[in-house]
Design a binder for these strands. Structure first.
Lengths: 130, 130
DNA sequence: AAGCATAATAGTAATTGTTATCAGTATTAT
DNA sequence: ATAATACTGATAACAATTACTATTATGCTT
């Protein structure tokens, strides 16, 4: 496996701007200074880096996938108003995992949890997006 | 709101064959006896019936949406081998909901939880799909 | 039962997010 | 420096879903 400039740029973009960006957001951010960067390259590398465990892929049921430089055990909440993605620590998820395998005999390999709602900031303010 | 034959057929198909079908599965099943049924009609009605609360839409992050005639509080597990969708009762999810709003101040409006893995049947057998 | 307003349909085209293809280019080991 | 090959950019392909529109069905009114 070779390490190209593009791959390094893409990884750093996710690490340095931890906004849980989509592939397109990464692409747009880097495009300005690298006009011939290709969207396919961004997708390919984000997926590769996720498989290698250097990034976490956040799958959102009704939206684009997002990517997270933080790879330890945590979950996400998507605000419907400002559409930001927030980290969420959930001890109950550990209990849930063992509960499911005990009760149903399912061997879990992946848990996709998407919490949607209105975040604290948006709740206390006027709507930012509508 | 008018109640067309198509809408009734589509609803009954989901209610009578509780396999958590995709829009395309509903379409294919009904198409044989109704050759000029349109896929768009199936999508439109499944979504409408879900909004009306007569069906539950199951959003799967990396696959097609599925529909469930059972609309009470429960979750789903998708088997990676046989790709069936199983109902899962999770008391911990109630705890999770109040936990999230208490701890983060997020008002939750929708929870999409997709459990992936290998179901009990597939675990005890030879792989059915690969 | 006939007429009428309108909601719903079939068929098609458009959209969106993502992946595949492939000729040319960059990277790394020798 | 050279050679092997992994990677890139550009474009096409793809799958799931939604939008569009002329036509048809539904249900109300009389």
């Amino acid at each position: 496996m070779k390490f190209s400039k593009q791959r390094e740029m893409i990884l750093n973009q996710v690490l340095n701007y931890p906004i849980h960006p989509t592939a397109d957001q990464v692409y747009t951010a880097l495009k300005t200074d690298n006009p011939n960067l290709s969207l396919g390259t961004v997708y390919r590398n984000l997926n590769l880096l996720s498989e290698m465990g250097m990034l976490m892929k956040i799958r959102i049921a009704d939206g684009s996938d997002r990517f997270d430089g933080r790879t330890d055990d945590h979950y996400h909440m998507v605000c419907e108003r400002c559409s930001k993605v927030y980290d969420v620590e959930l001890d109950t998820m550990k209990a849930l995992k063992s509960c499911v395998s005990d009760k149903y005999g399912h061997a879990l390999t992946e848990i996709t949890l998407t919490l949607k709602g209105v975040c604290a900031a948006c709740t206390s303010c006027t709507p930012q997006t509508e």
